[in-house]
Each structure stands twice: as C-alpha cells, then as structure tokens.
C-alpha cells in the first residue's frame, strides 16, 4: 500500500508498461540468442556430406547419417504405436465415456505420464523392454519407450480437438440415421484431423528431442540400423556423447544445428496446421 501512495497510478502504469514489454523482449532475446548461436556455429558444418555420410572415429569426423536414420526410425516406431492408442483413448473419453469416473482416471493417468522425468522412462525401458522382454538394445526398445512418452500428448491434444467439434455436426449425422461409429468415422474424425495431426506432431517432437529416456534402451551403436531389432543412436544422444566425451565440438555444433532446424520446421508446420484448422471450424 505504501508503494501505491508514493507513486501515482498513472506513473505506476507507465513503469509497468516498460517492465512488461521488457520481460516479453527478454524471452524473445533468449530464444534468439540460443538458436542464433547454435545455427551460426553449426550451419557451416552442415552440408550434404555431413548429412549423408557415416561417422568416422566415433564421430570425430565424418557425418551423422546413421543418427538421422536412427532418429527417424525410433520416432516412426513411437508414432505407429502411440497414435492408435492415444487417438483411441481420446475418442473413447470424448464420445463414449460420458460421465463415467474412468474419464478422471485416464486424464490423471495421462498427466502423470506427461510429467514423469524422462530418466524414469529410461530406467523402465531398460528393466522392462531391454531386459524383461528381451528386446535388447534396439530401435524397437527405444521406440516403445518414446511411444509411452508421446502417448499423453497425442491423447490430450486429440481429445481437445474432438470435443471442440460443434454438436450440430454429430446431430446432423445421427439425424440421417448414422450409427455412433459411422458418425465418428465419417464426421468427427475428418473434421478433427488437423487437431489430431497437431497432437501427433507434438508427441513426435517430444520423441525426436529425447535423449535421457533412450540412452539405456536404444544402445549407442554408430552403425546404420537396418531392422528394428538393431541398436542405433538418435541425434540427441549423439550430441550428448560428442559434447560430454569431448569427441568433436565442431560436429556437436553441426548435430545441434540439425536438431534445431528439425524443431523449427515442425513448429512452423504445426502452426500452419492449427491455423488451417481454426479457419475450417470457424468458416463453416
């Protein structure tokens, strides 16, 4: 209160305007600093040869092709497993469950999964997939761990997308004599597709970025993984090993730049999808 008496409301307004604008600017500068630094240091290393050749001397020189393939491979496995599960759960919770208490449980379960530390998933992956299920260090083990981590994101975003579809859409379909599943399949899913795609993309971003969860599941082989039972080394794990073991700072910058570019592309693409989706819902 003493503060209020000392400074008039108008002065307070002016001061706070500056403070608020400054804080917004700081956030933006932090992003610019980190991304700018990584790209400026990393992009000179990134060329076609770096992208498409094998590492030499455990990554001291040479490229990162097997790591790019490992990343895409584990992400693909994770997506193929997590998408049907997350989407199925989202359809059930928003269309079938009604006021069943299961809704609360599933949502809380998803929140727990979304906030568990990645290293806990790493330990679970090691104990369950690698040792118990005897999948060894493999793309499959890593993909399964990442699928579990991507699951809550896909579920949460798809549920939001499905439940935001106007009721009139469903009523129109029911009015024409369609069954529940026909309505879901022909009306709800096609309308919610951009939202669902956003959920899948966000889940996959989590999978692409993850290192701690896969470090004990996927192995750290420098060889090109062919089958899903081969070990691999996704990009974040490669970056981690290159920089902490002091193998090659240059190639670490290059790898970091490739990761940052991947994330940038995904973010721009998912924003494009969301905008399109909003126009579609509002335009009709």
């Amino acid at each position: 209160m003493g503060f209020n008496r000392l400074i008039s409301p108008k002065t307070a307004q002016k001061i706070m305007n500056i403070v608020l604008i400054a804080s917004g600017a700081i956030i933006f500068l932090i992003l610019l600093l980190i991304i700018g630094y990584i790209l400026i240091k990393g992009l000179p290393v990134v060329n076609l040869e770096f992208l498409f050749s094998n590492p030499i001397d455990s990554g001291k020189s040479g490229g990162i092709f097997p790591m790019i393939i490992s990343t895409l491979y584990v992400t693909l496995v994770a997506g193929l497993i997590a998408t049907p599960l997350g989407l199925g759960a989202a359809i059930y919770i928003s269309e079938y469950a009604g006021k069943n208490p299961i809704v609360g449980f599933v949502r809380f379960g998803a929140e727990i999964l979304a906030s568990l530390p990645s290293i806990v998933f790493g330990l679970f992956g090691l104990a369950f997939f690698v040792i118990f299920a005897q999948l060894k260090w493999s793309i499959l083990s890593g993909g399964l761990v990442l699928a579990i981590m991507a699951l809550p994101t896909i579920f949460q975003v798809s549920e939001l997308a499905i439940s935001s579809i106007p009721n009139s859409y469903k009523e129109g379909s029911y009015g024409l004599g369609a069954s529940k599943w026909q309505t879901i399949y022909k009306v709800i899913l096609p309308t919610a597709i951009p939202g669902i795609a956003t959920g899948v993309i966000l889940g996959m971003t989590r999978a692409i970025s993850e290192a701690a969860a896969v470090m004990f599941a996927v192995g750290s082989s420098l060889k090109m993984p062919i089958s899903i039972f081969d070990p691999g080394r996704p990009l974040p794990l490669h970056l981690y090993i290159l920089s902490t073991e002091g193998i090659s700072i240059e190639n670490a910058y290059g790898t970091a730049a490739v990761l940052v570019i991947m994330v940038l592309i995904i973010t721009i693409f998912s924003n494009y999808l969301i905008n399109k989706y909003q126009k579609k819902i509002m335009g009709e």
């Binding site: 981690y240 994330v263 973010t267 924003n271």
Partner: peptide, 24 residues
C-alpha cells in the same frame, strides 16, 4: 508471432540446452 517463439523454446531438445550451457 510470439506463440511459435514459445513453442520453439519448448521444442528445443534438452540436450541442445545443455550443450549451449556447456559451450557458452
């Protein structure tokens, strides 16, 4: 314009943050 900035910050792999911390 800011929304994608925040999303990008959220999407950058934690190892990249760690690497930035280590080198800068």
């Amino acid at each position: 314009f800011v929304k994608p900035v925040i999303e990008t910050l959220a999407g950058i792999p934690s190892v990249v943050y760690g690497f930035f911390g280590l080198t800068v």
